[in-house]
Design a protein around this nucleic acid. Structure first.
Length: 328
DNA sequence: AAGATTTGACCTAC
DNA sequence: GTAGGTCAAATCTT
């Protein structure tokens, strides 16, 4: 991966951390966020470029490579296990956690007999991963503040797809983060598919295909009506507005957490030129337009820069905070 | 009416 | 016995 991230634990470093374990945790956290954003961008790009032939194929290819790079880095951070090695947890250097591919600091889930490899991640948008899910249970988990929801693929029955995931709110912040645990791989071909997207495994192929992205609601009735063209225009407009607000909210959360803020130069937009990144404020200050009707476009472009263009560009693309809280 | 969600009961591993 | 995961009837939504 060509992205260059200024991240060290010393005084001259980008972000201050204490023990090496803190650095490790921070790296895993950022990689996990990056991976999640890549998945979401993949879904967005799929929708935006649908039917545009070469552009669609090129974007899909590059995003798969970015996703694969995140996966590899996460595997390395997990202790040297490769994605394929996750299928054999007995050989993992960290056999104590069945979902050792990604650790987010939450209590490890109870061990299961089936030995199914799991992937756990934190995300502000637990329901947007390109797949359609159906909730089949909810459980209050001991020593946690939030119930855990159990979901399986909407095509579990009709296509015998074994994919499942668990979603549990992770913190009290606004907007909140959610811990998502994926189990099993999708084996179904979901409708409106054009680009494979398997967030659970990072496998770009594997026969799993992405449905049209959706931000609301968690499962599929509204999506199906939209796909079927049975949604009234008013409903469609309302849904688009909810999608827009959800996207802005969740992306703002991610960017706030990272403190990666970018100036947006509207004149250079669309020409393909990478806009020079610049910190424009503290964690509470969002890029201009985020809370306006133009927010989505700005965020789309910034996320594209962050994940798509700049990893292949120059250094100095990443920002953090000094010990005194100022941005650099 | 069909499909999704909720929720208490049940199952199983520890 | 306890806790996590799943089932299935009841309820809700469209």
């Amino acid at each position: 991966m060509q992205a260059q991230c200024r991240l060290d634990g010393g005084g001259g470093g980008a972000v201050s951390f204490g023990a090496p374990a803190d650095v490790h945790e921070a790296v895993v956290r950022e990689l996990t966020r990056g991976h999640e954003l890549t998945a979401r961008l993949q879904a967005e790009a799929t929708r935006a470029l649908r039917g545009q032939g070469q552009a669609e194929a090129t974007a899909a290819f590059i995003l798969r490579e970015v996703s694969r790079a995140f996966t590899l880095c996460l595997s390395i951070m997990a202790g040297g296990a490769t994605p394929s090695a996750r299928a054999a947890p007995a050989t993992s250097p960290r056999p104590e956690t069945p979902d050792s591919a990604v650790s987010v600091g939450a209590p490890p889930p109870r061990a299961r007999e089936d030995n199914v490899p799991r992937k756990r991640t934190l995300t502000p948008s637990p329901f947007h991963d390109g797949y359609q899910w159906r909730k089949y249970g909810q459980k209050k988990i001991n020593n946690t503040n939030f119930p855990r929801g159990y979901y399986r693929c909407s095509y579990h029955r009709e296509r015998n797809c074994p994919a499942q995931k668990q979603v549990q709110q992770h913190n009290d912040e606004v907007p909140p983060l959610f811990a998502v645990v994926y189990t099993h791989e999708h084996t179904c071909e979901q409708p409106s598919a054009s680009v494979p997207l398997d967030v659970a495994t990072n496998s770009a192929s594997g026969g799993a295909a992405a449905a049209a992205p959706d931000f609301f609601p968690p499962t599929s009735l509204l999506q199906r009506r939209l796909h079927a063209g049975t949604l009234a225009d008013d409903d469609r407009a309302a849904k688009e507005e909810r999608e827009r607000q959800a996207l802005v909210s969740s992306l703002a959360c991610v960017l706030q957490g990272r403190q990666y803020y970018y100036d947006y130069d509207g004149d250079s937009r669309g020409a393909g030129a990478a806009v020079g990144p610049a910190p424009i404020g503290g964690p509470s200050e969002l890029p201009a337009g985020l809370d306006t009707g133009e927010g989505l476009d700005v965020m789309d472009y910034d996320v594209m820069n962050t994940l798509f263009l700049e990893p292949f560009g120059t250094e100095s693309n990443f920002y953090g905070t000094r010990d005194d809280g100022t941005l650099f």
